[in-house]
Amino acid sequence: MDIRTIGKTPLAVTQFGFGGAAIGGLYRECTQEAAMETLQTAWDAGMRYFDTAPFYGFGLSERRTGDFLRSKPRETYVLSTKVGRLLRPVPENQVPDYSYVNPLPFTVDYDYSYDGIMRAFEFSYARLGLNKIDILYVHDIGVYTHGVEKNTVYQRQLLDSGMRALDELKTSGAISAYGLGVNEVEVCLDVIARSPIDCILLAGRYSLLDRAAERGLLEVCRERKISLVIGGVFNSGILATGPVPGANFDYGPASDDILGRVRSMQKIAEANSIPLAAAAMQFPLREPVVANVLIGTAKPSSLTRNMELLKVDVPDSVYAAVEPFTIR
Rank of each mutant, 00 (worst) to 15 (best):
Y137D: 01
I327V: 15
D198G: 06
D67E: 13
G252C: 03
A42P: 12
N306I: 11
V293Q: 05
A53S: 15
L285C: 01
P105D: 08
Y125F: 15
L169V: 04
L218C: 09
T14W: 15
Q15I: 08
Y114Q: 05
R224T: 10
L159Y: 06
A320R: 11
L136G: 10
A174P: 02
R28F: 13
V101Y: 00
A165C: 01
V83E: 00
V220I: 03
F123L: 13
L128W: 07
N235W: 05
G246L: 05
I133E: 05
Y251S: 06
D109I: 11
I200P: 11
F68N: 02
R70V: 14
E270W: 05
Y114C: 04
V312R: 11
G59Y: 08
L86T: 13
G242C: 07
D115C: 00
P245V: 10
R164P: 02
T14Y: 15
T304N: 12
L169C: 02
R119K: 14
L218A: 08
T171Q: 12
Y27E: 06
I133G: 11
L128P: 05
D190A: 09
G116Q: 00
T241M: 07
C221V: 11
N93F: 02
Y49S: 08
Q94W: 01
P245M: 09
C199S: 13
Y206S: 00
G296M: 12
Q15C: 05
Y125M: 11
R194Q: 14
S302F: 12
R74L: 13
S124T: 02
E33G: 05
S273T: 10
P96S: 02
T31G: 14
L309G: 08
Q15D: 02
V191C: 13
A203T: 13
T326N: 09
Q94D: 01
V312H: 12
Y154R: 08
F121R: 00
I117L: 06
M36D: 01
